[in-house]
Amino acid sequence: MTARPRPGRAPFPRNHAMHEIRRQREPGETPFGFVLLLLSLGVMAEGHRLQGFEALSAPGVVPVAAGAVMALSALVIILGTRRLAPAPGGFARRIAPRDVALSVLMIAAYMAALEPVGFHLATLVFLAGIILYLRRGGLGFALAVSLASVIAVHVVFRMVFTVVLPQGWLLRGILPPGLLQ
């Protein structure tokens, strides 16, 4: 039941402290800037399709304006990024360390499983799995927490607020009827 404490990881970039100015360029920051620029151009293109350049009251006016602001800011951001010295360590260490990358994959798998397997089973497995991983052990604890959570969610959302949670169709014939409800 005990979770082993873990050694500290790579230095964490502090984004909360607004007044602290970052001096280093994070890995992937320049490509990210270009992705943002592309996004801006896409927004402007859609605005253009909606006659944003033609009439003051066209549906495309605000998209064109928003896209233009995005594009200009993206250019400024890219130029600013180039001036920074690169931070030590690659993308996999600073931006997508194993804990983050694996967790994101687990969430994605969980979401994909919601409809076929149903909310209850998917959540049970996901929660137990991710807690087990993040705590590096403690199967009993992980199972207990996930079971309690699923029951709590069921009571609040399904019973009180009559939200119809995904029921799942994959295992319909296999599991006894009462189990997924």
């Binding site: 319909r172 009827p177 997924l180 409800q181």
Partner: peptide, 17 residues
Amino acid sequence: MMHRRTLLGGLAAAPLL
């Protein structure tokens, strides 16, 4: 079995059962 409302799979699964 009939108390279940599926979101997507109902169409496929219902005749089966």
